[in-house]
């Protein structure tokens, strides 16, 4: 497994609540290879964002507990790292784009100030040369990045505050911040969800093109299989803190196996089929007392006694297609 940039192994993340531990992630396995675009798909509240936030170590301080698991970045466990090492990975290795661009940009600093800081603390900012020259270089880099996300008049944008920009522009700025310095892995957490549909499409295309151009790896978090199909090479389907199916994108759409994946696919409205025909009844289980065995069985029409007893492991179905279901 030498090619993995990121390799999450059997990760458990629990949140502390007044009623006890909310056991959200329940043994997640996930990896990203060099230059690969990976989708992490699941409905709201299934733990996609939690997984990726734990990679960057930005879960809410003091409110979570990781009882078990490893997050390996080039073979080094992030969870056991010293602050300086983690710092280095954050500033040089990975970057993240958040779901809500208005929340991800600090409202009281200019766009310029925020991009400059990203460059300054990335290790690329403090090269040799005088201070003013350095500043000029940082500025150049920032302008270049804003051009790359197709925003006109970058000089003026640098002086703007986030509230002066539209949602789409803000998300482009967030993308610019994520690619302004060289990084090998980009984590995009539903970057289009808060935007309207046409802008969403532009942002997705921009993101895919930039990742390809720079040879970065991408983790695309999304609740939409359609978006994942357009953007990714390989898809992880997540349900209630479990990875339930892994497959190459083409394979997954050609031959979906897990009942949850089938349900997700069926819930997509089809242009030819007259609206939504089916869906999945019920809702994500209570993480305080998650069902024993398969977490999906209360909503699954194939479930029987065995599903309630034991948690189904991921099984290799050939060609890198894995699924966690006894009934497949």
């Amino acid at each position: 497994m030498g090619n993995h940039i990121l390799d999450i192994r059997d990760l458990y993340v629990w949140y502390r609540t007044y009623e006890g531990y909310s056991k959200v992630l329940d043994g997640v396995d996930f990896n990203v290879n060099k230059g690969e675009k990976v989708g992490l798909v699941g409905e709201a509240g299934c733990g996609k964002t939690t997984t990726m936030r734990s990679v960057l170590g930005i879960l809410p301080e003091g409110q979570f507990h990781i009882p078990k698991g490893e997050i390996l970045y080039h073979g080094e466990n992030i969870l056991k790292m010293k602050p300086q090492e983690l710092h280095k990975i954050r500033s040089e290795g990975m970057s993240m784009i958040f779901q809500e661009p208005s929340a991800a940009l600090n409202p009281v600093f200019t766009i310029g100030s925020q991009i400059f800081d990203v460059i300054k603390y990335s290790g690329e900012g403090n090269s040799a040369g005088s201070r003013s020259k350095n500043k000029e270089k940082i500025r150049e880099k920032a302008i270049q990045a804003i051009r790359e996300v197709y925003i006109p008049d970058p000089e003026r944008i640098l002086e703007c505050y986030p509230n002066q920009l539209s949602g789409g522009m803000k998300q482009r700025i967030c993308i610019a911040m994520a690619i302004v310095t060289e990084r090998e892995l980009l984590i995009a957490d539903e970057p289009g969800t808060s935007l309207d549909v046409t802008i969403q499409d532009q942002v997705h295309r921009l993101l895919r093109d930039l990742v390809d151009k720079k040879g970065m790896s991408l983790v695309m978090i999304t609740h939409s299989l359609g978006v994942a199909r357009e953007m990714t090479d390989r898809i992880y389907v997540m349900y209630a803190g479990n990875i339930v199916e892994i497959a190459d994108t083409k394979e997954l759409f050609a031959n979906p196996l897990h009942p949850y994946t089938l349900g997700l696919l069926a819930s997509v409205p089809k242009l030819t089929g007259g609206g939504v025909t089916e869906g999945i009844y019920g809702q994500i289980p209570d993480y305080l007392n998650p069902p024993k065995g398969c977490r999906f069985y209360p909503r699954c029409d194939r479930a029987d006694h065995s599903c309630q007893q034991e948690k189904p492991p991921l099984r290799d179905m050939g060609d890198g297609h894995y699924t966690a279901c006894f009934k497949v």
Binding site: S95, M96, P107, F109, D117, Y121, C174
Partner: peptide
């Protein structure tokens, strides 16, 4: 807030995250 998580995730030092952002 996400903008703070973002500043942390970009690897900015503690004093910048706390003292500025």
């Amino acid at each position: 807030k996400d903008y703070l998580a973002s500043a942390v995730a970009f690897g900015m030092p503690d004093r910048v995250v706390m003292g500025k952002y």
